[in-house]
Design a protein around this nucleic acid. Structure first.
Length: 181
DNA sequence: TAGGCCATCTGGTCCT
DNA sequence: AGGACCAGATGGCCTA
């Protein structure tokens, strides 16, 4: 994990204990943001975006939380904390995945997209070898089993090269040497 | 300096 | 009702 200063939005956010916004919004059925506020235009952009394709419930906003701005502020802070914890869990899972898949550049942390891509390729490669091995268990297929390890490496290497991860061929070469010895 | 990656905030939607 | 999930927005850090 990078040691970065606490990122995020500037302290203009109301979550920084500045409940100057939304003082009396209870009577508003749909939009509670003050005109011209940052969240106002952000919300309007979102309302028609591709993500809002989850068709259910329409665009009506739920306003069942606490009535006072202070209470809403507290709930928002609690939500933020839960979201932070959720993202930390997700990042822990990414880290576990990084450690589970082989890659050469151990000094450079894999990005999330690299991790997912590599994991996908690794699974494909492992699937290949498992299928080969199961085929080898059946009669008349001894010849197939011979090349299963080589096939695994070939498959994995091919995917890596397609994705521009040619450096990983060093790792594969090592494995190949180990298998052949 | 531009672009990539990331953490965080946020509000809408889904699920229990 | 409230927590989980999701994705857009934003700004910071890092590297080429």
């Amino acid at each position: 994990m990078k040691s970065r200063a606490k990122a995020g939005r500037p302290s203009s956010s109301w979550s920084d204990q500045e409940p100057e916004l939304e003082v009396d919004t209870e009577a508003e059925p749909v939009s509670s943001e003050p005109e011209g506020s940052e969240d106002s235009w952000r919300g309007s952009l979102r309302s028609g975006g591709p993500k809002s394709g989850k068709a259910r419930g329409g665009s009506r906003r739920r306003r069942t939380h606490g009535t006072s701005s202070k209470e809403r502020s507290i709930r928002r802070l609690e939500s933020n904390e839960r979201e932070r914890q959720r993202m930390h869990k997700l990042n822990n899972a990414f880290q576990a995945l990084r450690e589970a898949i082989p890659h050469v550049k151990m000094d450079k942390k894999l990005s999330k997209i690299e991790t997912l891509t590599l994991a996908k390729n690794y699974i494909k490669a492992l699937t290949t070898i498992v299928l080969d091995m199961s085929a080898a268990c059946s009669p008349n297929s001894a010849a197939q089993s011979e090349g299963s390890a080589a096939k695994l490496l070939q498959c994995y290497q091919q995917h890596l090269e397609e994705e521009g991860e040619q450096d990983l061929t060093q790792y594969l070469t090592q494995i190949q040497d180990n298998l052949s010895s």
